[in-house]
Design a protein around this nucleic acid. Sequence first.
DNA 1: AATCATTGACGGGACACACC
DNA 2: GGTGTGTCCCGTCAATGATT
Length: 308
Amino acid sequence: MPEFSLKSDPLVSHGRHFGRTVFALCNYPSLLTNGILCLEQLEDATLEDFFIRERREHRVFEKLLDSYPGLLERLREGSEEEILHVGELIGKGASAARGEDTKSLKPVVIDWIVPAGEVILPPLPRNSKINRGFNHPLTHLQSGVISVSGDQWPLFLYANEAYDPEDPWNGLLRTCLLINAFRHIFTSPSSVDREPKATRAGNARLHGMTAVTGASIAYVTTQVRFALCSSSVFSRTDTATDSETFYHSLLDLLEDPDEQGEVTDLLVWWNYQIFPTSSAAKGTPKTNSALSKIRQKCATALTAASIS
DNA sequence: AATCATTGACGGGACACACC
DNA sequence: GGTGTGTCCCGTCAATGATT
């Protein structure tokens, strides 16, 4: 066999990383067709004429063009089918990566929320989600609210599981649980709780990623949220889990022009946690001993943490 | 009803790389 | 060489929705 295997089309690989770091949960074939259509119409209409949601999609579209050399030409010169095909490849990558991440996060997230050495009642099996979510105090996503819709944020988003009404940014998205999940997905599973000694390049290095993006934080947070809930099937349109609304609500905040000061601080903090030696983490001390101290702090804080 | 297509979870295996 | 670790891909299964 001459192996006509579509051995990892570069577009699929690109889609994996693009979904994780720029925009997940998206119908890429239609994003591309709409994007091209929009470019053609742009001469006699301004972006202001489009709805907010479409503006975001168009920004994503432009980021996609920027991130893949030659893509614009390929789409411009390609037939309608070709555009759809390219979209399918990118979407296939994004979707496969998402599926693998939910798969691998499902067991390990239990290790992160169950205090070391303790026996939990009712038990939280690593391979089953049946007791998670509202069925268990450790995974109980939110207190005092019956239905969890996507735009209500669970307390695990906040450091010490505390929301500060006076200062909504206080501790927001700065938790060990999210850092762990981010490392698990982007650097390597083994880099979560020890000094990284991976023998293979993780996803970040594989794709030349040296800085955290807001969307990647939103992505990881959405993955953790799903891992903690009792639903077994991730679906973009599932109204019970509402992952897409949740993901978008995080993006809304992280892309809000009025919040860029706070967002920049947040990204610096994250970069220091994830890429301590990269220039993206400049302005903060970055010796190895300081790093291990932080990680140690993270580990101890985590054992005491509970998701209420 | 019955059938088909699509989607996602899951397990497993191929492959690549860095150590011993 | 062998072993451990990680990504990527594939086959299978179940659930869901659309079509007939």
